[in-house]
Amino acid sequence: MIRPLLSLAALVVGAATSVHAADFTVTSPDFTDGGRLGEAQVFDGFGCTGGNVAPALAWTGAPAGTKSFAVTVYDPDAPTGSGFWHWSMFDIPAATTSLATGSTGAGRPAGAVEVRNDYGGTGFGGACPPPGPAHRYVVTVFALKVDKLGLGADATPAVTGFMLNANVLATARITALYGR
């Protein structure tokens, strides 16, 4: 009796966490999936001297029922024990299907909210890994089932992630690499 319940629980958890939609994709003219970030997307500080400019992004194939979008950039390879959040923007209107290069701060879509990154600033913070192997920078676009997450700019990346995952219909990802 326990084995069928465990199998059912695994199926339910798997279905609940499987949010990738095959038709929902994100691309960037600033880098290719698996390609290297340009100097424009590198942080200007912490020993790095890049442009600290948010990459351009475009997405297609969002599922029916999408009411807003969110974008995050996360480095799972950062030597922190919890990765490093470079950008979190949410409450992007559903009619928006792209962000131009530099769409952060005053350049973000009307109504969109950005929260503090792990550098301690609000908005996009570029790549700046310690010397050594290249790090992965995972750009995720979330198609959400709500117009607004109900969070302000003072939300932490962890709380933002919790609310994104609680309201996600689908995700699209692209990963860039950068090392020094």
Rank of each mutant, 00 (worst) to 15 (best):
T156F: 13
V13Y: 12
T96Y: 15
V53M: 03
A106C: 04
F43N: 12
M163A: 13
G65A: 05
I2P: 04
G161L: 12
F31P: 02
V168G: 08
P76G: 07
F69Y: 15
A70N: 04
T122L: 07
P55F: 09
F46M: 13
I2T: 09
G14R: 00
D75R: 03
V159K: 15
F142T: 02
G65P: 03
Y74R: 05
G83P: 02
F90R: 05
L149P: 09
G125L: 06
P157L: 12
K148G: 04
S82E: 14
S68R: 02
T27V: 15
G123K: 05
G65M: 11
K67N: 01
A170M: 05
G34Y: 04
F142C: 04
T49D: 12
C48H: 07
L151G: 05
A112L: 03
M1C: 08
G45L: 02
A94K: 07
G107D: 08
L169K: 08
R36E: 14
T140R: 13
K145V: 11
D33H: 05
M1G: 04
N165M: 13
L37I: 01
A16S: 12
A54Y: 09
A54T: 09
N167S: 06
T27M: 13
V141N: 08
A112S: 14
G125R: 05
A134H: 00
T97A: 14
S98Y: 10
F43A: 13
N165C: 11
S28C: 11
A110T: 14
T49V: 12
V146C: 10
A16V: 05
A134Y: 01
D118H: 10
G132R: 12
C128V: 10
T160V: 11
F24V: 10
T140H: 06
P109S: 09
A15F: 00
V19N: 03
G111C: 11
L37Q: 01
V19G: 00
Y119E: 13
P63W: 02
E39D: 15
A16Q: 02
N167V: 10
S98N: 09
L37R: 06
V159Q: 15
N117A: 09
T122G: 03
H20M: 07
L169Q: 06
G125K: 06
G123M: 08
F162M: 14
K148S: 11
G38N: 08
F142K: 02
A78K: 11
A64P: 15
L8Y: 03
T32L: 11
Y137I: 04
V141A: 11
V71F: 03
P109T: 13
A172Q: 04
A94Q: 02
A127H: 12
T80G: 12
A166T: 10
K67L: 04
T32I: 11
T101Y: 06
G50V: 01
L6G: 04
T171R: 11
T96A: 08
A40Y: 09
C128G: 15
G38Q: 07
A16Y: 00
V168R: 08
P76K: 03
